[in-house]
Computed example of a mutant assay.
Amino acid sequence: MAQRKSTDPPVRDGDRRSRRLSRGTRFVVTAYVICFLWGTAIHLVDLAGGGHNSYASHAPAPIRVYFVALVLLDPLAAVLLARLRPAGVLVAVAVMSVDVAANYYVNWPQITRHPDYPLRPLGLLPVTLFALFVAVTATSLYGHLARLKARDSALSRTRR
């Protein structure tokens, strides 16, 4: 094992873990984190602009509560994923599954009147594309992060 020079910056555990990820896995984690932080920013702007009433007033109360809760759930997913925790993938899948379903439910009257409504660049399109990205990548990402966590646990047990 190479010794660290005193001029080298200290290596945090998360830094070592992220260096062991493949380029593709790092890309996926980065995309998740950026999208969840972007979602957090959008929900914060919505709430700042109109409070809890900024979300479809015709939607059932549980959906409106969920949209407000995304101000906490989106950054939770981002932090867990940035820390390379497998639970972050589970949170991401749950958040995006409910988010896309709730958005389509609320916007269904618009979709039935204008079938191209989901293809508009602002609104359903980014939510749908990100939900599809999560659906396609979640199983593999969870496996990578779970193996990484298991290796780290095994290493920490052998160092004791």
Score class of each variant (00 low, 15 high):
R20S: 07
W38E: 04
R12E: 10
T7W: 06
R26G: 10
R20M: 03
G24W: 06
T25R: 07
V28K: 09
V33G: 08
C35P: 05
G24R: 13
W38A: 14
D15V: 02
C35Y: 14
R16N: 02
R19K: 12
T25C: 13
F36P: 03
V11C: 10
V28P: 01
R12S: 11
L21H: 03
R17V: 06
P9V: 01
Y32L: 07
C35T: 14
V33W: 00
V33K: 06
W38V: 09
T7Q: 08
L21D: 08
S22H: 02
P10T: 09
F27S: 13
F27T: 12
D13I: 05
R16K: 08
V29G: 10
G14I: 14
Y32A: 07
V29F: 10
G14Q: 13
S6M: 00
V11E: 12
D8S: 05
V28E: 02
F27Q: 11
R16E: 08
R20N: 05
T25W: 03
R20C: 02
T7V: 04
R17Q: 09
G14F: 07
R20H: 04
S22W: 04
T7M: 10
L37T: 00
R20K: 10
G14D: 09
G14A: 11
T30H: 04
L21A: 03
L21K: 07
R20V: 01
D13Y: 04
A31H: 01
R19C: 06
P9L: 00
S22T: 14
D8H: 07
G24C: 03
W38F: 13
S18E: 11
L37D: 09
Y32M: 13
T7S: 11
L21T: 05
T30L: 09
G14H: 05
T25D: 10
P9A: 05
R17I: 03
F36L: 02
D13N: 11
C35W: 15
R23L: 14
R26H: 08
D13C: 03
V11S: 11
R19E: 13
R12D: 08
R19D: 12
P10W: 00
S22D: 12
A31C: 13
D8K: 02
F27M: 12
R12C: 01
R19Y: 02
D15W: 05
S22P: 06
V11L: 14
I34L: 15
R12Q: 11
V11K: 10
